[in-house]
């Protein structure tokens, strides 16, 4: 139906003419009424973007962020009726649009904020019982072949910029220390006890999660993560256990530990 296509295009582009054949119930000007509707659509989507990327907004300032959000909304309107997850393409859009090139860390910061949103909405999973893990320790020679199952909320990302420190400086009420934005930083993002956490980690720690997510064994993932990168296996396992994001272990020689 081309009428619907025209309608949608006109909604997002103020330069287009109002779709033909509009009538109003009380005889007021359809052009004006359509303009109100167009404004409501764009502003509400811009509001959703602002809610998801508050630190990006704080860095850029409200006026510039609004311009950036408006450009994004018109370029990539939601494909899903679920507004809570709108904004997945925002980071790439920011990088490609060159609208904020004076803030080179902004795309990665947006990725971090989106990871927080994804962690918040991720599914639930029961953490595995540490007692099961202690039993696994009885056969240490099998450890390298184990596959770890991770909580759906756990994500890992790294950046050439100090996005973790910048993000942290915009949480809570502490006065931020001086941050050098050009220091590379990495983080794990996860949900624990119904709240999202951003944990500063090393580059190798991020690779470790990526390798486990790809289905590599514990031994393979640890070897890959340690290869030429800062990686601490004990720290990784401790955080997985403490934050309760280790949900199961698959032992190919035995059985599946729930």
């Amino acid at each position: 139906m081309s009428g619907q296509t025209d309608w949608c295009a006109a909604l997002l582009d103020p330069a287009r003419t109002v779709p033909a054949g509009l009538v109003t119930w009380n005889g007021s000007d359809p052009v004006q009424r359509f303009a109100v509707y167009r404004n409501n659509v764009t502003v509400s989507l811009m509001g959703a973007i602002a809610d998801t990327f508050p630190v990006c907004q704080a860095l850029l300032g409200a006026a510039r962020f609004r311009a950036l959000a408006r450009a994004f909304v018109r370029d990539q309107p939601p494909r899903s009726p679920v507004l809570a997850r709108y904004g997945a393409g925002f980071a790439d859009f920011v990088a490609a649009s060159h609208l904020a090139d004076d803030w080179p860390c902004l795309p990665d910061l947006a990725r971090l904020e989106l990871a927080c949103l994804d962690a918040l909405h991720a599914g639930d999973a029961e953490p595995m019982d540490p007692a099961t893990l202690a039993a696994v320790m009885a056969g240490p020679e099998r450890l390298p072949a184990l596959r770890l199952r991770l909580h759906p909320s756990l994500a890992a990302l790294d950046s050439r910029y100090a996005v973790v420190s910048i993000w942290a400086a915009h949480q809570g009420d502490e006065t931020p220390a001086n941050i050098d934005p050009d220091v590379p930083e990495s983080a794990w993002v996860l949900r624990h006890d119904r709240s999202v956490r951003v944990l500063p980690m090393a580059v190798g720690d991020v690779r470790f999660i990526a390798a486990l997510r790809h289905g590599l064994t514990l031994g393979e993932a640890a070897a890959l993560a340690a290869d030429g990168a800062d990686f601490d296996l004990t720290r990784c396992l401790t955080v997985l256990l403490r934050e309760q994001v280790l949900t199961g272990i698959h032992d190919p020689d035995l059985r599946i530990h729930p």
Binding site: P130, L133, A134, V136, M137, P140, E141, L143, P144, L218, G219, A222, A223, L233, T234, L237, T238, L240, L241, R242
Partner: peptide
């Protein structure tokens, strides 16, 4: 590499279990 990793894994996992159990 795998032999080293098996011993390292056991040490790391043992330590992690101890640390994580405390808090």
């Amino acid at each position: 590499n795998q032999t080293v990793t098996a011993a390292a894994l056991a040490l790391a996992l043992g330590t992690a279990l101890t640390i994580a159990a405390v808090p």
